[in-house]
Simulated assay, not measured.
Amino acid sequence: MTSPGGLRPILITGGAGFIGANLADALAAEGRDVLIYDALLRPGVEANLDWLKRRHPDRISAVVADVRDTAALAAAAGDAAAVFHFAAQVAVTTSLVEPATDFDVNLGATLQLLEALRRRPDPAPLIFASTNKVYGDLADLAFRREGEAYRPADETLHRHGIGEDRPLDFHTPYGCSKGGADQYVLDYARSFGVPTCVMRMSCIYGPRQMGTEDQGWVAHFLIRALAEQPIAIYGDGYQVRDILHVADAVAAYRAALARIGQVSGRAYNLGGGPANAVSLRQVLGAIRDLVAQPLDLSFHDWRAGDQRYYVSDTRRAAADLGLDAPIAWRTGLRDLARWLAEARGLVLPEESAPRRLAASVSSA
């Protein structure tokens, strides 16, 4: 299958989703033909695909199909110049309700995609979107609370974050399916010479994200705040993540493809790193300032497999992929807030106004 430009396209599974759409836009803008493969099941992704087609009518083509459709997936992969594999079941909660579906989508379909590439005389590179959940809940690590966030007792961990040498420890069906796929992708480089690379992502956020309570929490919090709706917090809100703007994630994926000869068979932790390590409460405080009104928060039990602290050690990725310092999280949060407000016909208050509000977020 060729793209409108007549060249071998870059295939992006889940390409109408948040990260896939941003990546497709960047690739098309530099003159690459892109084939979007997406079932269009997630609310809002049809709008992303329409946006891509309007912006790049001669570069973007699409196959609307499920990744469990082996024949359609093999056909799309058969002519691809490279593959970015984002299509997935993305919610831990859903995996606990429907573990067999989670397995089929996340692990089974990834294996079929790898097989389609292996059967080619010239296997195309595959860059896989994995997750920090492959490291489990990190329950063996000691943390203490400082202010509004958890902090590791180990100072080296605090300075650098979790490295790729951390032992894998799959929790929940989602962790198992994504972790299993992660390992298959790496092994196909070792066993069969398929050029592959794995990105173990922390929390990515930014424009075109349709966040929900189960996935995409930064956008979800902003969407609820802009709509003046209640926000549910699972856990105590002091849990920490290193959030990364989607522009920086796209840069990392593009760099991995450009350097696939050097990085094939490697996995990288991809996140904002210690400089962008922030707790849910700290993000909520910044959101409160952006919308210039108090937030209606409620607190609930921790969810299965949730980590009290996860921050990526990004030194290996930065060195091997030549990455620049990531966008500061407050700057990126304002960028997402403006996009979400504009998409809803809203205007954010002046950023000076929120400073008159009380500084604290309600306690659990």
Score class of each variant (00 low, 15 high):
Val218Trp: 01
Pro57Phe: 10
Arg356Ile: 10
His300Gln: 14
Gly332Glu: 08
Gly261Tyr: 06
Val246Asn: 01
Tyr309His: 14
Ala76Val: 02
Glu164Lys: 00
Asn132Asp: 12
Arg55Gly: 14
Tyr205Ala: 03
Arg308Cys: 07
His158Met: 11
Arg68Ile: 06
Ser352Met: 04
Glu146Met: 10
Asp58Phe: 05
Gly179Tyr: 04
Ala325Lys: 12
Ser279Met: 10
Asp182His: 15
Ala364Lys: 10
Phe86Ser: 08
Asp301Thr: 07
Gly235Asn: 06
Ala219Asn: 02
Asp140Leu: 02
Gln209Tyr: 02
Pro121Glu: 13
Gly273Thr: 07
Met1Cys: 07
Arg119Lys: 13
Ile19Thr: 14
Met210Tyr: 11
Leu23Val: 07
Ile233Ser: 06
Gly206Asn: 01
His158Arg: 14
Arg59Gln: 14
Leu346Ser: 06
Leu138Glu: 06
Phe103Lys: 09
Gly193Pro: 00
Gly237Val: 05
Leu73Lys: 06
Ile243Tyr: 01
Thr156Val: 13
Arg119Trp: 09
Val278Cys: 03
Pro349Trp: 07
Met201Leu: 15
Val83Ser: 11
Gly31Glu: 06
Pro43Tyr: 10
Phe86Thr: 05
Ala87Arg: 06
Ala275Tyr: 02
Gly345Val: 01
Met1Gln: 11
Ala142Tyr: 00
Tyr135Ala: 06
Tyr309Asp: 03
Trp329Pro: 00
Leu23Lys: 04
Asn22Glu: 13
Pro125Ala: 04
Ala142Ser: 13
Ser312Met: 00
Ala29Ser: 14
Ala76Thr: 03
Val347Ile: 05
Ala292Leu: 00
Ala28Phe: 03
Thr94Phe: 12
Pro207His: 01
Glu98Trp: 09
Pro326Cys: 04
Met1Leu: 14
Asp140Ala: 12
Ala251Trp: 05
Leu336Met: 12
Val34Ile: 03
Thr94Asn: 12
Asp320Met: 01
Ser279Tyr: 01
Tyr268Asn: 05
Pro230Ile: 01
Arg32Leu: 13
Arg356Gln: 13
Leu222Met: 12
Gly235His: 04
Leu284Thr: 04
Val263Ser: 09
Ala24Phe: 03
Pro167Arg: 13
Ser352Gln: 10
Leu11Thr: 01
Val347Cys: 06
Ala153Thr: 13
Glu350Arg: 13
Glu213Met: 10
Ala359Tyr: 05
Asp165Tyr: 04
Arg55Leu: 15
Gln215Asp: 15
Asp214Met: 06
Tyr253Thr: 05
Asp50Tyr: 09
Gly305Met: 09
Pro152Lys: 07
Thr196Phe: 07
Ser298Pro: 04
Val83Cys: 14
Leu96Trp: 00
Gly211Cys: 09
Ala275Asn: 08
Gln183Arg: 15
Arg308Gly: 11
Pro121Met: 08
His158Pro: 00
Val198Ala: 06
Thr172Trp: 02
Leu117Ser: 10
Gln282Tyr: 03
Gly15Lys: 07
Ala75Thr: 14
Thr331Asn: 05
Arg334Asp: 12
His300Cys: 09
Ala109Met: 10
Ala82Arg: 01
Ala317Met: 10
Arg59Asp: 05
Met210Ser: 12
Gly5Val: 00
